[in-house]
């Protein structure tokens, strides 16, 4: 058997399907650029290099979370637990690292060495991912309910550990280093560099590996994927662990940046991660979407919200703007695809 026999020929069908995805991603990129240019015309001092950099660097946390959420959405599953996991892992890392003898309950931790502390916090975060996978894959509960539940469980544990507020005393010196490390003498911090690395790796996995393509097949047709020998349960378990690990790292970095474990950190981040994925053209039904699209979806949201702030709208506008942006994105994408495939 020759190798060429195993690889399906590039038929009209496969070329068209991939084409649709590239088409939507291009649409998202164009929308982001057009919005940026419009905002530059309307808002003074908007068209500046530093502002462009800020649009990305201010949103490193949500974009990083968006990577895991995008993969899960592509496989046809929600992950709304990431915001809770951000709070949990941050609080855990602080609690583990605080020295054992403190003045009161909130300043007494477990006194672990820092790197052991963050490793354990990461494990705690991934336990939530494991819980997601257990309920979704083994018990067959709809993922939106499961991950809403685990979001509350994760945040609930964080609230119990911090007694509903925060822990920020009695921390070792090295705790605040990771989140505030400036890279290569620029104003760019380590978390941003990690986010860019994560996106590069994610794009590679998505486009060039079997794992990435399997994700699409599961999302496009779960039954067909199972029948063609893909271990769906294992795959989705990996995706949930992957997503919660990212959220765990984000939580640890945020805790380090602010030198505190705050039980309300990451509030609503799960919705923002979902929103940028949707703005970026990821289909809620699964099987369609890309990490690059998600990234530019985040840019769209960032441009819209920061332009609104620049136009001196009240910050209360952000919810309304988000709603309108997502609504337009979904309607336009559906319309564009329907028109193209007519």
């Amino acid at each position: 058997m020759t190798i060429s026999a195993q690889i399906p020929p590039r038929t009209e069908f496969t070329r068209r399907r991939l084409g649709d995805e590239a088409f939507i991603t291009l649409l998202v990129v164009l929308a982001a650029v057009a919005l940026f240019l419009t905002a530059s015309l309307l808002v003074p001092n908007f068209f500046q290099l530093q502002n462009m950099i800020n649009l990305v660097t201010n949103n490193w946390a949500v974009i990083s979370l968006g990577v895991g959420v995008t993969f899960l959405l592509v496989s046809g599953n929600f992950d709304l637990s990431v915001g809770g996991v951000v709070a949990l892992s941050g609080v855990l890392s602080v609690w583990f690292a605080q020295s054992a003898g403190g003045a009161n309950a909130l300043s007494t931790g477990l006194g672990m060495p820092y790197f052991l502390a963050i490793a354990c916090a990461l494990l705690g975060a991934m336990a939530i991912g494991g819980l997601n996978a257990l309920f979704v894959v083994r018990f067959g509960v709809p993922s939106i309910i499961v991950t809403l539940g685990t979001m509350m469980v994760a945040r609930g544990i964080a609230q119990v550990i911090t007694h509903g507020s925060q822990r920020n005393t009695n921390l070792p010196e090295e705790f605040g280093v990771l989140g505030n490390l400036y890279m290569f003498g620029t104003s760019v911090k380590l978390p941003v560099v990690l986010m860019i690395l994560l996106i590069l790796i994610a794009v590679f996995i998505e486009k060039k590996t079997v794992f990435g393509r399997k994700t699409y097949w599961i999302g496009a047709n779960a039954v067909a994927a199972t029948l063609s020998g893909i271990d769906r349960a294992k795959h989705i378990t990996y995706l949930y662990l992957f997503s919660s690990a990212i959220a765990g790292v984000v939580g640890i970095l945020l805790a380090s940046e602010f030198k505190s474990g705050f039980s309300n950190r990451g509030m609503l981040m799960e919705f923002d991660a979902l929103v940028i994925a949707l703005l970026g053209g990821v289909a809620i039904a699964g099987g369609f979407g890309s990490v690059v699209g998600m990234f530019f979806g985040a840019i769209i949201l960032a441009v819209v919200t920061s332009a609104a702030t620049g136009l001196v709208l009240s910050p209360d506008w952000q919810f309304t703007l988000k709603a309108i942006a997502v609504f337009l994105a979904i309607v336009v994408q559906t319309w564009a695809l329907a028109r193209r495939n007519r």
Binding site: G149, T150, M151, M152, V153, A154, R155, G156, I157, Q159, V160, T162, H163, G164, S263
Partner: peptide, 8 residues
């Protein structure tokens, strides 16, 4: 502060 955990 146990409420979120219990409800979740």
């Amino acid at each position: 502060y146990y409420q979120t955990l219990v409800i979740g």
